[in-house]
């Protein structure tokens, strides 16, 4: 797509591109070398710093990766629970918003807009500080799950709504003309198709949820960031530990992102004959945090 900005290069342009490639390559390489030399001078590439993370013969390797393993389980279980709860509550919210009459629709819209404006850290912090004060004592993980669900359920509600709106009107009309009730139309005609369309957006939202579980560190839930901070206290290797943690997150989220792309390609191949729900897809994309960083 981007090649539309310039013509197919002729001999002169090719030379220019080659020269600027070399110049840019040298500059980028220079910066990388500078950073590496600088870090090496600070003693950041010693076996003492990297060994516990990368060398299986190192005495600390086992315990460190054991901790990382527990962090992975903690992260994935919090993310999984959040996804399930957000899906259920989000779908209920979306259905309420679609079916509500105008006398109380504003209430649902108000709740959704309000929760969308709440920073997710504040939601987690709120859950962890307020719930114990009103006598609800839960394991720490549940405060994280509640905080994340508060934030994500409204985003999923918007995704589901966009999915329902994307369906051709005839689908619902055909259902009503067969004598189905509104609930039956939603349950057996609209929602199954909406979920199909929304699958890529839902997977992208899962990336956001996985990233946001890292906020568990503020309430001392032992996910990756908290675990990294514990490891650093003993091993004194913050840079190395955070590089490894970042690599783990990139691996998980990059794979999820690729999965979303793959599912999207498959779905669009299957739906070629149906009306393209392009607008709704954009609307759903706008709701998803994966494209805004939220």
């Amino acid at each position: 797509m981007t090649s539309v900005l310039y013509d197919a290069p002729g001999p002169k342009a090719r030379t220019r591109t080659l020269i600027s490639s070399i110049v840019a390559g040298v500059i980028v390489l220079g910066v990388v070398v500078f950073v590496i030399v600088r870090l090496a001078n600070q003693g950041q590439f010693t076996a003492a710093k990297w060994g516990p993370l990368l060398d299986p013969t190192n005495g600390d390797f086992g315990p460190v990766w054991n901790l990382f393993g527990q962090a992975l389980v903690a992260t994935l279980s919090a993310a999984g629970l959040t996804l399930v709860f957000s899906l259920v509550i989000g779908t209920l919210l979306a259905v309420t918003r679609v079916t509500a009459n105008r006398y109380y629709r504003w209430l649902v819209v108000g709740v959704i807009e309000f929760l969308r404006g709440v920073p997710v850290v504040i939601a987690i912090f709120f859950a962890a500080r307020v719930l114990p004060q009103v006598g609800i004592d839960l394991p720490i993980m549940w405060y994280l799950v509640i905080g994340l669900t508060l934030y994500n359920c409204v985003i999923i509600a918007e995704i589901v709504r966009a999915g329902i709106n994307a369906l051709p009107r005839g689908q619902a009309e055909a259902g009503y003309s067969l004598g189905l009730t509104q609930g039956q139309v939603l349950r057996s005609i609209l929602l199954p198709q909406a979920f199909r369309i929304m699958l890529p957006a839902l997977i992208s939202q899962l990336v956001v949820i996985v990233k946001d579980t890292s906020l568990g560190f503020i309430i001392s839930y032992e996910e990756f960031v908290r675990t990294a901070n514990i490891i650093i206290q003993t091993l004194q290797n913050p840079i190395q530990t955070y590089v490894v943690v970042a690599a783990i997150f990139i691996l998980i989220n990059y794979s999820l992102g690729k999965l979303a792309e793959y599912v999207e390609r498959r779905l669009s191949r299957g739906r070629k004959t149906a009306a393209a729900p392009a607008d709704a897809e954009q609307e759903a994309d706008a709701a998803v945090g994966a494209v805004t960083g939220g």
């Binding site: 890292s214 990756f224 960031v225 990294a228 955070y242 970042a246 997150f249 990139i250 989220n253």
Partner: peptide, 19 residues
């Protein structure tokens, strides 16, 4: 895009002084 903001912040806070 794939790293949580919290990890980025900690990495920046520990990494930049070393540079």
């Amino acid at each position: 895009r794939n790293t949580p903001l919290a990890v980025v912040l900690f990495a920046v806070a520990f990494g930049l002084p070393e540079l």
